[in-house]
Design a protein around this nucleic acid. Structure first.
Lengths: 362, 362
DNA sequence: TTTTCTTGTGAGACCGGTCTCAAATGGAAA
DNA sequence: TTTCCATTTGAGACCGGTCTCACAAGAAAA
């Protein structure tokens, strides 16, 4: 823990000495600011090359106050949704010569807080966050009030008026659920990995994360439209990759009044569901219809292929990054909330409900 | 591009003034070094809290010379293989209070070089790289010679003697191919996303990336063992997600002497293949057997589920990170090359070749 | 020729920490 | 009481850049 051999790196002063000019002059040509004569510039450049000078970005950042990097905090980098969004972000960042420090919150607020603290200490110029928990946003509010621009990805926070990019969750859920109700389903479950802070019990107003709330709203809209009562009973939170959630899924699928259709909030949940449905000896779509958010690559190769809500994930990342970088450049327009449209890709995972057909013909 | 409002942050001096002690003393308690009396410590801490002091990690890094972060350069963060490995790395890093700056090379050497340059300028304490190209490693050699520890993930470089963690690629390929040969296959293709620098033509010695070379060696071993001649004809490079590679796949699958079995080098290639095989109206496993490296989550839900080589991907990331961090702490044992074992998970994507059965019964 | 302006350069402060060194304090030993 | 040593504290250099300011020299204007 003691000796980092401390490579004696080449500094501006070294170059200056070699080029026989002052440190200030060398710094000017090396840093690309101020005015220098052609001859001196050439001399300095030559000296720099000879010495193999590499600027110390840290030192530079310290004086300028800008680190040239932005922090990105996502829930779970393993979720292909986030990987893709992150690529959108980094592609944009690269174009502006900004680099990205990535942190994983594992959807834990504490980890999120910690990640943000570390990123701030590293003096990131801006922050893109996918808030893990809707209840605790004090740390985000604090950032928003500070000089460091903050942008929200995929999940809006009503109480936090900052640049935000989401998709038309409510509408997407509505349309997806409608496909289900129109196929005659009346027992429809909505499964999300999100955890509820507090208790649900029908008060969707208590759900603070826009993504979750909007989707539930859309889901309930469609259910109501179809005359399905107490649809909110079938909303399941916390359906992650954990053991408990698997057990819960099993329980749900094996109960006598199990749903005949499920809407999954992301492809990870959907995959778990897909496996569990099989394990329970059920068949998609005959015994169980399934629609999921996110057109993950595998959804088209299963048997049957899954009907999905295709979100513009890459564009989502691209847009927040653009918004944030614009802000970094000094733009001070009021915060923008961009909502990107989604499409539904109908595949083979939704079936007509038999008794509806029976009823219809009876 | 001009005015970053420059939040006037609280510094040690501010805290010192408030606590009525010298800057040095305040720094001691805030930085957690040296000796300070209980009373003074309490006073400083209180002042710090009152002022809401946050250390500037950049300034700290500048004097100490250690930035507390490591750089990770992977080929494609969207590939679940890398996402998982990266999680392994960051989990370990977090435990040591080190954070990770992630960069994507897109498997392009130039991007890789650039990413490394940026990361070095940011004074990362160490570097983990998945070398994109085997031919151009001058930039890596340079790092290896410098004071900054370098570790290689998944791909070894024979000419670069640094800490490296890979899997038993040769053996894995051998065993996988054997499954195929034992099922009677004689026309077996090996498809990798890797691009060859130069030309292949049977000289596997010219392939510098260990992963690719070892796998090919294992593949050829098994073919030879089964008496298959000129097996190297069926090695296909550059099978990425691109249009050209799809076209190539189509060509291969529709040719009259198409292979009856394929070994895919990663799950992204395998998924492309899976889709293409379907598009060509072929069926797995009757018309085409398929085995792939990496037990990606979707491989178990397809029809049929895919036989895979299960690599300990998370452990791969975990191990390199551990190696690198040990090195950061001053360990100077000679470089280690760790090879992790793989398992084969046999599912339903391999079929017996009919004419072999015929022969056997004849 | 003298004055004024422009341009190039150097000296040195500064960013926010760490860390060395010397001085001050106080208790124990002589 | 005097001497010595350990502990605590302060002053200030330093890390590697940026940037302000003053000054010198040459060009243009008077």
């Amino acid at each position: 823990m003691k000796r980092p051999p401390k490579a004696p790196s080449i500094t501006v002063s070294d170059v200056a000495r070699q080029a026989k000019v002052s440190k200030a002059t060398a710094a000017r040509v090396l840093g690309g600011y101020g005015r220098v004569s052609k001859t001196v510039r050439a001399a300095v450049l030559e000296a720099a090359k000879a010495l193999d000078y590499r600027p110390n970005e840290l030192a530079r950042s310290m004086t300028t106050g800008r680190s040239g990097s932005i922090g990105v905090v996502v829930g779970d980098i393993e979720n292909p949704f986030f990987s893709l969004a992150v690529r959108g972000i980094s592609d944009v960042a690269r174009l502006s010569g900004i680099n990205v420090i990535l942190a994983n919150s594992g959807e834990q607020v504490e980890a999120e807080k910690n990640a943000i603290r570390v990123l701030m200490a590293k003096q990131v110029d801006g922050l893109i966050v996918t808030p893990a928990q809707s209840g605790e946003i004090a740390h985000l509010v604090e950032i928003a009030c500070s000089a460091c621009p903050l942008a929200l990805l995929d999940r809006a926070l009503p109480d936090l008026d900052v640049d935000t990019v989401t998709v038309d969750d409510r509408d997407a859920a509505l349309r997806a659920t409608r496909i289900l109700t129109r196929a005659g389903h009346t027992r429809i479950a909505y499964m999300t990995a999100a955890v509820l802070s507090g208790d649900f019990r029908g008060g969707e107003s208590r759900i603070n994360t826009s993504t979750v709330r909007e989707r539930i709203l859309g889901f309930l809209d469609a259910c109501q439209e179809a005359g399905i009562e107490r649809a909110e009973r079938n909303i399941r939170f916390g359906s992650g990759r954990s053991e408990t959630s698997r057990a819960a899924m099993h329980g749900l699928l094996q109960s006598p009044d199990r749903p005949t259709a499920i809407l999954a909030s992301d492809s990870v949940v959907a995959l778990e569901l897909f496996k569990t449905i099989r394990e329970c000896g059920l068949h998609i779509p005959q015994d169980m219809s399934l629609i999921t958010f996110h057109d993950a690559d595998w959804t088209s190769v299963t048997t049957p292929p899954i009907t999905v809500i295709d979100q513009p994930v890459y564009a989502l990342g691209k847009s927040v990054a653009e918004l944030l970088i614009r802000r970094l450049k000094g733009d001070d327009r009021p915060p923008e909330r961009i909502i990107l449209p989604t499409t539904i890709i109908e595949r083979m995972s939704v079936a007509q409900v038999p008794d509806v057909i029976t009823q219809a013909t009876a």
